[in-house]
C-alpha cells in the first residue's frame, strides 16, 4: 500500500523529503499490533515452560515436594505486589492521556518500586530454596519450577529496566508521540506479565501444595 503511495507521489514530482513522510504513513497502530504479536510469541514460550512443569511437576526424585517448599503467604504478597503494580501502571497511562508528565512519572516510579519488590521477594525465595538444597539440579520438578518462575522473573526484571529507561526518556523529551507509543507497549508488556503470573501462582504454587 505504502509502496504504491511512494511511487505515485514521486511521479507527481514531490520533493525528496515527502517520500519519508509517505513511507511513515503506516497507521501508528502497526507498532502496537507488532508488539502484540511479540507478546503472543512470548506466550508460546511460557506455554512450553508450563507444559514442561505440567509433565515434570510431580517428578520429585525423592526430593522435597511443592507442599514442603512453597511458602503461600510469600506468594500471596508477591501476587499482591504485581497486581498493585498493574493498577499503578494503569494510573500512569491515564495521567499520560491527560498530558500530566509529573504524575505520570510518579505512578511509573511506584510501578517500578512494586516490580522491584516483587523481584526482591522472588530472589529471596530462590536463595532460600537453594540454601535448603532444593536448587534446580535437585529434581525434574525443581528444574521446571526454576525455569518457569525464573523466566517470568527475568521478564519482570527487563520490564523494570525498560520502565526506568522510559522514565529518563519522558523526563528528557516529555509526552511526545514516540514516548506515548513506548508507554503503550510497556503497558501491554507489564499487564501481559501479570496475566502470566496468574497462571504461575495458580498452576505452580496453589496446585503444587495440593495433596
Amino acid at each position: 500500500m505504502s509502496e504504491i503511495n511512494v511511487t505515485s507521489s514521486a511521479a507527481a514530482g514531490a520533493d525528496v523529503s515527502s517520500r519519508f513522510y509517505v513511507r511513515e504513513h503506516h497507521p501508528e497502530n502497526s507498532t502496537l499490533l507488532g508488539f502484540w504479536l511479540y507478546l503472543m510469541s512470548d506466550c508460546l514460550v511460557f506455554a512450553c515452560l508450563f507444559v514442561a512443569y505440567a509433565v515434570l511437576g510431580r517428578a520429585y526424585a525423592g526430593g522435597p515436594t511443592g507442599a514442603e517448599l512453597f511458602d503461600l503467604p510469600l506468594v500471596a504478597t508477591n501476587t499482591a505486589l504485581l497486581l498493585l503494580s498493574s493498577i499503578t501502571y494503569g494510573f500512569a497511562m491515564l495521567e499520560s492521556q491527560r498530558k500530566r508528565l509529573g504524575s505520570t512519572l510518579l505512578w511509573l516510579g511506584v510501578t517500578g518500586l512494586l516490580g522491584a519488590g516483587f523481584i526482591a521477594l522472588e530472589l529471596h525465595e530462590f536463595t532460600h530454596l537453594i540454601h535448603e538444597g532444593a536448587g534446580p539440579q535437585r529434581s525434574a520438578f525443581l528444574t521446571s519450577f526454576f525455569a518457569l518462575v525464573g523466566t517470568h522473573g527475568l521478564h519482570v526484571s527487563f520490564g523494570i529496566i525498560w520502565l526506568v529507561t522510559l522514565m529518563f526518556q519522558l523526563n528528557r523529551h516529555g509526552l511526545i508521540p514516540e514516548n506515548r507509543r513506548r508507554l503503550m507497549c510497556l503497558s501491554m508488556f507489564w499487564h501481559f506479565l501479570d496475566v502470566v503470573w496468574i497462571g504461575v501462582f495458580t498452576f505452580v504454587y496453589l496446585m503444587g501444595v495440593l495433596p
Partner: peptide, 29 residues
C-alpha cells in the same frame, strides 16, 4: 493516531478490573 487510541481505559474500567482481580485472586488463595 492518538484519537484512535483514546479509548484505552478509564479510571472506572481500571478500578473495576482491579477489584475483580483482587477478588478472583483472594478466593483461590
Amino acid at each position: 493516531g492518538h484519537d484512535d487510541h483514546a479509548d484505552h481505559g478509564s479510571l472506572k474500567s481500571y478500578t473495576i478490573g482491579f477489584l475483580l482481580s483482587v477478588i478472583l485472586t483472594a478466593i483461590p488463595f
